[in-house]
């Protein structure tokens, strides 16, 4: 079964990509952070070095994942299900 995800972009990631939401569809049955980053890097190469490290397939330390607006997630533990919203947020909360 395909997994459809909505990736919500915040901060500079939204400005660089020029959009708030990105719909991704995966045919694999298991989808993790690496897969999302690979897909985003293909769609928006300009995110490389600013939001994500396309070589290491990781978010830069200035960004974090949040699943469905509820829990902050360690990328390696991220298990995504069909219909999930994955938020990419600036990690520095202060102000």
């Amino acid at each position: 079964m395909a997994i459809n995800l909505t990736v919500e972009l915040y901060g500079n990631s939204r400005i660089i990509a020029g959009q708030k939401l990105v719909q991704l569809e995966f045919t694999e049955s298991k989808v993790g952070a690496v897969d999302v980053i690979r897909a985003l890097a293909l769609l928006f190469p300009a995110l490389g070095g600013k939001v994500l490290d396309s070589g290491d397939k990781r978010l830069l330390s200035s960004y974090v994942f949040n699943l469905n607006g509820v829990g902050f997630q360690d990328p390696e533990k991220l298990k995504l299900c069909d219909g999930d919203a994955l938020l990419i947020l600036p990690s520095q909360a202060g102000g």
Binding site: Y10, G11, N12, S62, P90, Q92
Partner: peptide, 17 residues
């Protein structure tokens, strides 16, 4: 990387998040 948010949008970035 550690100051990226502050340099790009400043603390205004908090609002939508």
């Amino acid at each position: 990387e550690a100051t990226e948010k502050y340099r790009t949008l400043g603390t205004m970035a908090n609002l939508s998040v």
